[in-house]
Simulated scan of single mutants.
Amino acid sequence: MDLNSLDKINIEGLEVFAKHGVFKEEQFLGQKFVVNATLYTNTRKAGLSDDLTASIDYGMISKKIVEFMQENTFELIETVAEKLAQKLLMETERLEGITLEIQKPWAPVLLPLKNVSVKITRSWHEAYIALGSNMGDKKKYLDEAINSLDNLDYVRVENVSDFIETLPYGGVSQDDFLNGCAAIKTLYTPMELLDCLHRLENEAGRERKIHWGPRTLDLDIIFYDDLVMSTKELIIPHVQMHLRDFVLVPLAQIAPWVRHPIFGTTVAELLEANKKDYIKDKQFI
């Protein structure tokens, strides 16, 4: 999510008396905190209509901040900021991102300082997940994977392609695959999302015995915003997605306009350019 393209609503200097801190005295007696928040959204519709329901009610947000900080106790203001950002993003319609600064002016450090603070920015991210199965009840595995994705704490499934039957990829003798793609919004980082996908695969009985071998469930991150990353554990965009019709066909059904952040071409253009034929039957199921 490109927060720079969005409008901002600012809340500055919200004072809250709450009980957060490492020391028992802080958690018992409490102290003053000051919260600054920048809400990233699109105010165009509200500005044209003069309708509060088309924007974000900063009074409501301020009340939620106060209630959260007074109803919870954490040792670290880092945790206060993280948990509060997650709560507001999950519960506030049209809120795409948030910058939170939690100030602790009475921090007990026994030195003459004006303030201690933590400042974080968190936002929703757009990601595309490829799904595949070629063992047992394939459609059931994919349907359950979609449902499990949508039930993850910080994931919203936005769109799901139809499923297509495809030939095996990689030269290993095995049953045909059922493949699809899902568009999601998530608060997870790429590595956190990968861990979640691996957990769902394990819950479906996935065994990693043969490279490109049969599997009950295969979940891959294809795109994550416009991110380009390469680590031992994860490469984004998926390194071979542009060569795989079984990824491009369902992905083009739900996101033909999305551009590959390295090649600069759309999913529809990548599909047109890819002449390899791994699709057994290009009819959607």
Rank of each mutant, 00 (worst) to 15 (best):
L3G: 09
N4C: 10
D7R: 02
K8T: 15
I11K: 03
E12Y: 15
G13Y: 11
L14F: 10
V16A: 04
V16F: 04
A18P: 04
A18V: 08
K19F: 06
H20R: 07
G21M: 03
F28R: 10
L29A: 11
L29F: 06
G30C: 02
Q31K: 07
V35S: 04
V35I: 09
A37C: 07
L39W: 09
N42R: 15
K45V: 14
G47V: 11
S49R: 09
T53N: 07
S55E: 00
S55N: 02
I56C: 00
M60G: 13
M60C: 13
S62C: 01
N72Q: 13
T73H: 11
E78K: 15
V80C: 09
K83H: 11
L84G: 10
L84F: 12
K87D: 15
L88Q: 03
L89W: 04
L89P: 02
E93T: 15
L95W: 15
E96Y: 15
T99E: 12
P108K: 00
L110C: 01
L110E: 02
K119T: 06
I120F: 04
T121I: 10
W124H: 01
E126H: 12
A130Q: 01
G132W: 00
M135L: 13
D137V: 06
D137R: 06
D137A: 11
K139C: 10
L142R: 08
D143N: 13
S148W: 00
L149Q: 00
D150N: 08
N159I: 01
F163C: 04
F163N: 03
I164K: 03
Y169P: 07
G170V: 06
Q174Y: 07
F177C: 01
N179K: 02
N179H: 00
C181G: 04
A183W: 06
I184A: 12
K185H: 14
K185S: 14
T186D: 09
L187P: 06
Y188D: 12
P190Y: 07
N202D: 13
G205E: 01
G205M: 04
R208F: 09
R208Q: 05
G213D: 10
D218A: 05
D220A: 05
F223P: 01
D226Y: 14
D226P: 10
L227N: 10
M229Q: 15
S230Q: 15
T231L: 11
K232V: 15
E233G: 14
I236H: 01
R244Y: 07
F246Y: 02
F246D: 00
L248D: 02
L248W: 03
P250H: 01
A255L: 08
H260L: 07
F263M: 14
G264V: 06
T266E: 07
D277Y: 11
Y278F: 13
K280C: 00
K282D: 12
Q283F: 13
